[in-house]
Design a binder for these strands. Structure first.
Lengths: 216, 216
DNA sequence: CATTCACAGTACCGTACGGTACGGTTCGCC
DNA sequence: GGCGAACCGTACCGTACGGTACTGTGAATG
């Protein structure tokens, strides 16, 4: 479990990180409407003037929040050992569970709602930022895993992105969107473990070589 | 292509439908921020007072917009004929294409963004409304198709919802979310036909009986 | 001690929006 | 013609928010 080092990026001071933490908390609790500059300043015990000095304007604050949160997601590579059919499946299930946990997280949902809300505005790089630092990053982990599986003769596919797209769809389907829409959490079965296993099982039936016999 | 008759619902007068149309147009063009009561009134050549009389308040207008749009989606059942392996595949591909077209539609994207933006607020039934009238409705069509396929011995599954969930994931994956995030449309391959075929092919490999030989 | 810097706290400004009230106009009805 | 309902256009009100300016304060620096 290693924090991903992001060489680029301005990177903020500890004090500013605290402020961003407060802002994220505020966003999670009350949605975008609750995220006013005044309320952020009050929650973080700082002045509005400092907010504007550090982040430029409100959009700058939002971008900083996304970048800050992204800097905290772990991107650990776990494909050191040589893969067997069993370990490949295990790693895939682990990946699927992690993906579902991340997508279902409070902060992730709040930030995605925020970015989607801003998507209609022209400039707003929030969407692409989230896309780049979120899905792309976790996708790299999956991509490495898939290629390792292919190198071990356990998976068969031409295009890695296609395979990953299929895997993602099998794991998530429209669950993410339903959560974003605020569907009563009671109706969403939180059994991510079972869902992950089923998705991986289906994926292996589609892309597994005959060498990897996956029985449900 | 038959309009679905929705017996329930208040249903608005033609004049009010025109207003809702203008409001949707406004939402599509400028996002939620552009959807002020004043701008709606101006675009629809009506008075704000009438808006408040007809829809109660701003939230009532938003709800009415969703209900209005949902009343326009066609839900035609096309499973009259007896299914063969070829026609089943054909119908599934048609369904997949329609689904993608609907999800990629301007109005659909705008309304989903709106509902997601409001999801953090407590009350806001917008999310469940969209869910109920959108996905549920089109899901009924898919469900009927899947069960017809099973009755014809072409598909094998225990739980219809599980099968539909898989089909949906294979078709859409995270494409919907990426569009909602406003990903540069240039990067999204608009080749829905090809995507639909690949998804259905994978689905048939997973759920098709040996009776239905699907070659890619 | 004097100076400077970073910052909190607060007051302030302009604007924009949700919602309401009112005058004027059209249309149907008696 | 007289009357009322529906409704448009606009003016209006209260409030909330983004952003700026100002004052006070504590800590570092010389």
């Amino acid at each position: 479990m290693q924090l991903a080092a992001h060489p680029q990026q301005p990177d903020y001071s500890p004090r500013q990180n605290d402020v961003l933490d407060s802002a994220l908390r505020l966003l999670v609790d009350g949605g975008e409407k609750a995220l006013t500059t005044a309320s952020v300043a009050r929650a973080a015990n700082c002045s509005k003037e400092s907010l504007y000095k550090w982040f430029g304007d409100r959009d700058g604050l939002l971008s900083a929040m996304i970048g800050f949160q992204a800097s905290k997601v772990r991107t650990f590579d776990d494909t050191a050992e040589t893969l067997t059919a069993a370990t490949l499946q295990e790693h895939l299930v682990l990946f699927a569970r992690d993906l579902l946990e991340v997508l279902a997280g409070d902060v992730s949902l709040a930030l995605n709602r925020l970015a989607i809300g801003q998507a209609s505005r022209d400039g707003s790089k929030l969407g692409s930022m989230l896309q780049e630092r979120g899905r792309r990053q976790i996708g790299k982990r999956a991509g490495a895993l898939l290629e390792a599986g292919r190198d071990a003769g356990l998976l068969v596919f031409d295009d890695r992105d296609d395979a990953y797209d299929t895997l993602y769809g099998l794991i998530v389907s429209d669950l993410h969107l339903r959560m974003l829409l605020g569907e009563d959490s009671g109706r969403i079965v939180k059994d991510f473990g079972r869902r992950a296993e089923k998705a991986v099982s289906a994926f292996l039936r589609l892309y597994g070589s005959e060498k990897s016999s996956a029985r449900s």
